[in-house]
Design a protein around this nucleic acid. Sequence first.
DNA 1: TCGGTGCAATCATCATACAATAAGTTGAAG
DNA 2: CTTCAACTTATTGTATGATGATTGCACCGA
Lengths: 240, 240
Amino acid sequence: MISLPKRSPPGQSSSALHRQIIQELGSRIVGGRYPAGESLPNEEVLCAELQVSRTALREAVKVLGAKGLLDSRPRIGTSIRPVKAWNMLDADILAWRCRHDQDQGEELLRQLSEVREIIEPNACLLAARNRTPAELADVESAYMAMAASENIQDWVKADLNFHVAVLAASRNQLLIPLSTVISSALEMLLSFSARRASNFKKALPDHGKVLEAIRAQDERGAFASMQKLLSDTRARLTQR
Amino acid sequence: MISLPKRSPPGQSSSALHRQIIQELGSRIVGGRYPAGESLPNEEVLCAELQVSRTALREAVKVLGAKGLLDSRPRIGTSIRPVKAWNMLDADILAWRCRHDQDQGEELLRQLSEVREIIEPNACLLAARNRTPAELADVESAYMAMAASENIQDWVKADLNFHVAVLAASRNQLLIPLSTVISSALEMLLSFSARRASNFKKALPDHGKVLEAIRAQDERGAFASMQKLLSDTRARLTQR
DNA sequence: TCGGTGCAATCATCATACAATAAGTTGAAG
DNA sequence: CTTCAACTTATTGTATGATGATTGCACCGA
């Protein structure tokens, strides 16, 4: 029997407890459980409620503060910052919104798609211009994985890898973090479309054209083919 | 005599010490003082060096971890994550890079400008489509401040407000956080151009056209005028 | 009514102790 | 000699209690 992976994946602060508190509080805040602008319960109460020590709680509060959700001051307490101040591009916040915003989910998905349609064609153009052979190989292998996928989970995973690889190939470090937007958009698309197993490869030819344009270093073609891919996706969604 | 602002501006975790440790460690890491992939000194040593308690140090480390800079594990230590994992859109990280990357500063400025030229024309188009009267007024008052500015500091401040107001008017919550990119770009532009006091208003007419296009809800005009503004800025820079 | 002044609630920081984790070491079995 | 499991130990994770700093708020005097 192979033991489960012992080290947590990189990027997630190792320990469980910490992560749990961040998740719990972050979910509550994004979910609107605490009124925006008002205060959280004080440390003592929250510690009792969550059954953790002040140390653990405070470290979580500090992290949420760095994400723009909280602001704590002596005597005042820890208050929820206005939505305007939240770092909406943060991976965690996006994930919490994806799961909580089921009311305004369509609005969030609209904004996610809007950003994708701005970023990705341009990133794709840059990828065609700047790609190295190694980065082209990454895009290609993601495409291969999409073609070879036999269920929708594998497809989505490979799809995400494809788009991230394109961003990476643009060789612009500031574009790479936007892969969180793409990731969230795909997650929401999944939750909307009733993930029927048939026909999930409908977008494969469009991806193929993107790959070929990047390979040929055809900048305008790369831009156009990515734009087409995204608008087709949008059309397929709105037609339901 | 008016007293200095007593409460730290919102968004900055109140107390100084935290902020100091975060700044100090973040600067060191971004500045390359610790080899990427390798470990920081352990907590005891760092506490002694920075003259702070473990609590304070650990809270800072947790925040830097949330920014993607660090990853700490028992027995292993706290290690610098690969540059690829850094959240380059984070306001702090961008600021640290602006001050430290003097070697590769031009490369950073190039990437910042690239992102601006992708985002801003499209955001401007959306602003023309979606703006409310209030948001239009914000753009306009920033423009007025630019016109009225009498020194380069006031000009830059108003310029930043102008571009942030345009992003806000796009009514896309995911675009607003990108104002950090614009802010950093302007800061770098300042540090490059030798801030001579004359002629700093050269870009005013371009901004006026952007304002008018947004007012008239002329989407294509808004896109084009913002694109022209940015390309003119780039031209003015490279010509030195 | 107004302005200063002290109180007290809350977070900020510190110090210490113990638990959990996992790399490295050791030693025994094959 | 190799292999693998158990032990050791360095490092971070969590808990707890005490003290300092900040500041809204109530109280008090003019």
